[in-house]
């Protein structure tokens, strides 16, 4: 367990020290949300209707932006070889990296969400369900993203391939997430969203670990 938390701490530390740190994803998120009123026009009822969906799409894209480095840097400097030989199971390492990715990339977006929500005229009443839906649903984005990142780790400019693999898999999270963001806290969409996150928690680490083992050989 000490090794697990050592890996989480290392990835958080590294994320903070990379150029721009967590602010790159955050800035991207804010800009995407800002773009929508420019494109749709100042139709306030329309904006507030599409608001939860827009925020969910923006979170999803901002998450995707940081995913291609999840294993890439470790692959390039030889760390991945050592990871695969370490006593900590590779599946646990994937979990640790996903946890660190979620904390450094997604949590700042959720914290910033109330501040940018006024751009899409979000009703204050659905702020809480939307935040809960993001907390429940976004871990699946990191987990499924880890699978895509593991599959494309040896691919030059794998970021684009990664998007093609991962985005279709994000569709259930987006559908249930945006729906849960408008409904009540324990409604059906929220339960499905939670189920989707749990399913990806159960499956994605094994798939990603298998993909990593293939990638280094």
């Amino acid at each position: 367990m000490r090794a697990f938390w050592a890996l989480v701490a290392r990835d958080i530390k590294l994320a903070g020290r990379l150029g721009g740190g967590p602010f790159v994803g955050l800035g991207f998120f804010i800009i995407v949300v800002t773009m929508v009123p420019f494109g749709v026009g100042a139709d306030l009822p329309l904006l507030s209707r599409i608001g939860p969906g827009v925020l969910w799409v923006a979170v999803l894209l901002a998450t995707l932006l940081s995913l291609d480095r999840l294993f890439q840097a470790d692959f390039e400097d030889g760390s991945l070889d050592l990871f695969l030989m370490s006593p900590l199971p590779v599946e646990m390492q994937v979990l640790a990296k996903c946890l660190a990715h979620w904390i450094t990339n997604t949590v700042p977006l959720i914290i910033a969400m109330p501040a940018v929500a006024f751009l899409v005229n979000l009703e204050t009443g659905i702020m809480l369900p939307l935040i809960v839906s993001l907390l429940v649903g976004t871990p699946s984005l990191s987990l499924i993203g880890a699978l895509g990142a593991a599959l494309t780790v040896g691919v030059r400019r794998g970021g684009l391939v990664l998007s093609l693999i991962v985005l279709p898999l994000y569709v259930p999270a987006l559908i249930f997430g945006a729906a849960a963001g408008t409904g009540d806290l324990m409604g059906t969409p929220m339960l499905f969203l939670g189920a989707f996150s749990l399913a990806s928690l159960a499956l994605a680490p094994f798939a990603a670990a298998a993909a990593l083992r293939i990638s280094v050989s």
Partner: peptide, 21 residues
């Protein structure tokens, strides 16, 4: 390859690998 992170210090690099193993 050395598996060292350029953003981390000498000691942080060493401590991480030793604790992971």
């Amino acid at each position: 390859l050395d598996a060292l992170k350029p953003q981390m210090s000498v000691m942080e690099n060493l401590r991480f690998w030793v604790s992971l193993f």
